[in-house]
Design a protein around this nucleic acid. Sequence first.
DNA 1: TCAAAAACCGTACCAACGGTATGGTGAATC
DNA 2: GATTCACCATACCGTTGGTACGGTTTTTGA
Lengths: 216, 216
Amino acid sequence: MKKGVETRQRILDIAEAAVLAKGFAATSIDEIIAEAGITKSGFFYHFKDKNQLAREMVLRFTDANERMFNEVFGRGRELADDPLQAFLIGLKLLAETLADVQSKHPGCIVASICYQERLFDREVVEMTRQFTVGWTARLRGYLVEIANVYPATGVDLDALAESLGCMIDGAIILGKMMGDPGRVERQVLAYRNLVKLSFSSSVHATVPASFLLAAE
Amino acid sequence: MKKGVETRQRILDIAEAAVLAKGFAATSIDEIIAEAGITKSGFFYHFKDKNQLAREMVLRFTDANERMFNEVFGRGRELADDPLQAFLIGLKLLAETLADVQSKHPGCIVASICYQERLFDREVVEMTRQFTVGWTARLRGYLVEIANVYPATGVDLDALAESLGCMIDGAIILGKMMGDPGRVERQVLAYRNLVKLSFSSSVHATVPASFLLAAE
DNA sequence: TCAAAAACCGTACCAACGGTATGGTGAATC
DNA sequence: GATTCACCATACCGTTGGTACGGTTTTTGA
């Protein structure tokens, strides 16, 4: 009952690396079992089909990410009482952590699935959606907390909450395309700057609305 | 020599819609030819393989986008002399245009390819890369122009140039996942706000002459 | 220790898909 | 009026995801 878990884990390791490197469709089962040193029967003993493989890969990925977010933003909370400072620290740590992770296995399982929806069943897609919903809700929570201390007028908190995820996913794509995973870190820091600017109301006050809204 | 072009066009239309909806791998040739009302032989008469189909789809997509960018940012230039205002107008128009396009066929061919690299040959991947390089260079050009008028200290122009593309691609993913293409417009507007904030924070430090005149 | 369950292996097979090959045919074009 | 264009029909090939089923070894709980 223990060796089975280990083999399962090994299959998932190999599959994840392959999927991030070349997509789900281009990752054949034959290739996975060859690297894992098992047979096709062995594979299908653990996973009834490719969809279940996807399901467990998503679960693994989302769990790992959830832990990571708890880590960095929890650490931010530990190091600063002020919600804005805590969040900014969390973002800095997130940037560093992502830079490290992306340099090893560039890619996002969740994003890679969304562009190949029809390859997966409803359950897999729903899992990626739930993860995304949870992530944006978390971000929004942080921002609302900050907004209570630093009232920011004219800032769309929902859009701002979604921006980080967008910038990360976009940066991953950019990084993959350019062969430079470092873009992810830069974009997270760019987001950090956006948050700083959004909640520094003193700047808002010094600039007359007529000037900034001239282009509206 | 005319009917051939028309059929070719029809195949590309069908393929593009299918690829954006369910990914390149999940789009079978059988399915395309069924919808186009031709046979397999007919398909391979026009495209020697699936890679050439991809190549022409990318070309179509990038051309259309290039035209769109010229349109919106050109219009911005027409409506305002100030580079910042011109850019902000361009972004507003871009947001509207993208909202319209995405509501019809949500997705980005270039991004969809990057997560399935191995399905395509070098040429296709290189085309998407060149498009991305051109796009960020264009953005950077606009920002440098703006920075000449509104010196912004502590702003990473390269990162800021890349942010828009990241936010759009990320928002497309988010939109696809949530079934709401409207996210793209919101993120472009969020970027617009980021640009505004980035170049207004310098106003109190280094006040440009144009600002003093406008304030009077 | 021993039977049962878990963790596989081997082989054979199927349908779908991308792609090739070959030999046509009606229509447009030069 | 010959040639090229724009296809159609049929047959075939290799790969891949997946099924079926029976056999074997390894682990484990009683």
